[in-house]
Amino acid sequence: MGLLLTELVPLLRRYCASQLARYGRGDWAEDMVQEIMLTVHLKLHTYDDAMPFLAWLYAVAKHKIIDALRRERMHHVPLEEAADVVDGGGEAPLAQRDLAQLLAQLKPPAGEIIQALKVEGASVKALAAQYGMSESNIKIVVHRGLRRLAEMMAKERA
């Protein structure tokens, strides 16, 4: 999975940058790449292996970009502020965030479990023993946490 995502990043960066630049939102590219990668991880089962993978990937990317642009338009379009939004360079908020800060917003113990998996490299089995949960439950907590993380990223942008 890691290899696949690593291979996808340059493609997604180029795609997001070119698409978002058309709407004056080139600075969102890195955040969008992250959001798309989370979505790829969560929705990979919707890929039909009879179809080209890149067609699926770009469909996911296109959907997320349109969704982000639509949400942004719904939330703030006052014309007088438009120039500020575009020129403000809008430092991508999430790209600057500390991972721990973001994970802390998840419902406990999802943040801790994801952090342990990522930072400490703990195994699912060890975490299951530590938290008194089954391995399946640990995986469910991680998946729900990732989904929540994706929602938080989406809301943050809106």
């Binding site: 999975m1 890691g2 290899l3 995502l5 690593t6 990043v9 890195e30 790449v33 992250q34 990668m37 989370l38 991880h41 969560l42 990979l44 089962h45 999430l94 790209a95 965030r97 500390d98 991972l99 973001l102 994801i114 998996l117 990522k118 490299g121 699912v124 995986k139 991680v142 998946h143 990732l146």
Partner: peptide
């Protein structure tokens, strides 16, 4: 979050079981 961190995080997360 850096993109590399996210890749590491996701690569350590088992893939989701397909829903019904």
């Amino acid at each position: 979050m850096r993109t590399d961190d996210l890749i590491t995080l996701l690569s350590q997360t088992p893939p989701r079981r397909p829903p019904l």
